[in-house]
Design a protein around this nucleic acid. Structure first.
Length: 304
DNA sequence: CCCCGCCCCCGCCATT
DNA sequence: CGAATGGCGGGGGCGG
């Protein structure tokens, strides 16, 4: 449910004329949704009564009922919505519902490890990605678990409204920052279950401690014993971002952290985060956060 | 602020 | 034949 907050928070950030209108629809005959935690949510409507087409269709899977009982009416409704909507997202076990609709054949998706085997066995043509917390395949998004749904929501917001808004939403929701799709920040429990060791995953663990190194594609490819072209492809497929973008995000994150929580000079921050000089850092901040590093630090410290 | 060179990204094709 | 890999080149964005 937490990912719903991200959209309302985005509305608050962009101000009046709210951008998102969220409608919760139940997949049952009545409006009640029973969560596995023992509380009950009342949706705005049951799916049968929802004839409005969603711009973004988000299908959330519940933990206790793996959504595998074939409710033909529900599947037909989802198929119909999916055919009309601009993009589709599956959260956790929601992938099973979309798969049952035949919407995942040949598509790249991820799901909670708890459903992975079932999904793979029942729908062999689905391309399951294992070492990401969320994945995007064209207009199809999916994520591994409920909390990853939050990251997915931030991703959608970022695509709709830009990085600045997404970052602010993440900030106001007390998240350290937008997590990337990669596995490096996945929870320990999920990591233990879901991550087979790959060259990319070990690279992702190595990266944050080596921001000052040469992190060009060639250098990273050499480190991973791949050709540059192939490395870039594999990386993008597994991580969901291009290598340079990912590195840029890491460095930006590091710089923000240093500005907020240390009194290093800006030049030192730039150096520590792996930027050649402070001009590069400055331009990145202006591009991504529309604020200079110095002002960023000032507003952060002035706020407290 | 501008400009040039570099590198990233991606489409495309050849090879295995 | 299809999937995986490597190489090439252009276009565009970014850094110096």
């Amino acid at each position: 449910v937490a990912f719903l907050d991200a959209f309302s928070e985005a509305n608050r950030v962009v101000g009046r004329g709210s951008h998102y209108r969220v409608q919760v629809v139940s997949g049952s005959s009545d409006r009640n949704l029973m969560s596995q935690d023992g509380f009950c949510i009342q949706a705005a409507s049951a799916y049968r009564n929802c004839l409005r087409v969603a711009d973004t269709l988000i299908v959330a899977g519940s933990g206790n009922s793996p959504a595998t009982k074939e409710d033909d009416g529900l599947l037909a409704w989802v198929r119909w919505q999916a055919s009309k909507s601009r993009r589709i997202a599956a959260i956790s076990g929601g992938a099973l519902v979309l798969a049952a609709c035949g919407l995942l054949d040949g598509r790249k998706v991820t799901t909670h490890w708890q459903f992975r085997d079932l999904l793979a066995a029942r729908y062999p043509s689905v391309a399951i990605e294992q070492d990401v917390i969320y994945v995007r395949d064209a207009n199809l998004y999916s994520c591994a678990g409920a909390t990853a749904g939050l990251d997915l929501a931030l991703r959608l917001i970022e695509e709709d409204l830009g990085t600045t808004v997404a970052t602010e939403v993440a900030h106001s929701m007390l998240l350290p920052s937008r997590r990337s799709g990669s596995a490096d920040q996945i929870s320990a429990a999920l990591r233990a279950q879901a991550v087979p060791e790959t060259p990319i995953s070990s690279l992702l663990e190595w990266l944050p401690d080596h921001l000052q190194d040469d992190l060009s594609i060639q250098a990273l490819a050499r480190r991973s014993a791949m050709s540059p072209r192939n490395f870039a492809r594999i990386f993008r497929r597994q991580v969901g971002q291009t290598p340079a973008k990912y590195v840029e995000n890491l460095r930006l994150q590091a710089a923000r952290f240093l500005l907020e929580s240390s009194d290093c000079t800006i030049e030192n921050v730039a150096f520590l985060a792996g930027f050649g000089n402070c001009e590069t850092l400055r331009r990145l901040f202006l591009r991504r956060l529309t604020i200079t590093p110095g002002r960023y630090r000032a507003t952060k410290s002035a706020g407290k």
